[in-house]
Design a protein around this nucleic acid. Sequence first.
DNA 1: CAGCGTTACCTGAGTGAGTCAACTAATCTC
DNA 2: GAGATTAGTTGACTCACTCAGGTAACGCTG
Lengths: 138, 138
Amino acid sequence: MTEVADALAQQMWDFVFAYDAAYDRAAQVAGLSAAQACLLEHLSRGSRSMGELALELSCDASNVTQLVSRLEARGLVARVPDPDDRRIKRVSITPTGRDVRGAVRRAFEFPSERIGMLTEQEQRQLSGLLGKVSGRAS
Amino acid sequence: MTEVADALAQQMWDFVFAYDAAYDRAAQVAGLSAAQACLLEHLSRGSRSMGELALELSCDASNVTQLVSRLEARGLVARVPDPDDRRIKRVSITPTGRDVRGAVRRAFEFPSERIGMLTEQEQRQLSGLLGKVSGRAS
DNA sequence: CAGCGTTACCTGAGTGAGTCAACTAATCTC
DNA sequence: GAGATTAGTTGACTCACTCAGGTAACGCTG
């Protein structure tokens, strides 16, 4: 590994560490754990079944059961049985949940803060590089 | 927020998500949790006191106690009382610990893999941007 | 050096995240 | 309709993490 690549690896680690810590804090401000906030975020565009959530969060279905139960107990999400398939429960965010999710977003200043440190040209550059690094054409 | 900035925020999230997942998997390959692997990594250059570890990992001291205890029970680290101050326990990595840490590093292909997708010039560019984004001025 | 506050670490209790195995109920297939 | 499959839940378990409270060692001050 070259010296540049080495430094880059370290910078990535540091960035991810800071990002994670910031998200944790943001969730906590809204009285949530990071996992709960993440789940709430995934309900942004429409409801999800338990199984879909498990896939998207890449965790066990029984973990989703617990997460959703805790959020439901606080009135942030609702479990709605699917009329077409009574095995399925669709999870949807409640108005209260929307509020709390908003609070998390507002508290999570990290990305926009950091992005704001770059000129628009640099933003485009970074976006291109991240795109390339993520294996998708940009 | 502009459209570029929006896309960038999403890319950051995805990148961090992938990075975290990869680190988790790498640790697991070596039979460790991410937190344990992280602690082991922090012992790379010399020993640390319990308190120093708590600071570096930004978590409670009692959490470090447990993490170290579990690692110690498996012979990966050792608690050495400081001769100058008998309150202090210095934690150092054992040869076995070094092996396991090596296994984690080998399994954690994510960064070098992704960095390898860039030309050296692009690497320099990304490093510059990450450096700017990590700037502490504001 | 005796007393007292501070520091470093540990213990215990409690919560949440996460996994796995076993279970129930609904759906699908033949 | 019998049997396999799928969706979700439950229970048992481990780990990460926090907080409050404890103990031993250090350091200072009188």
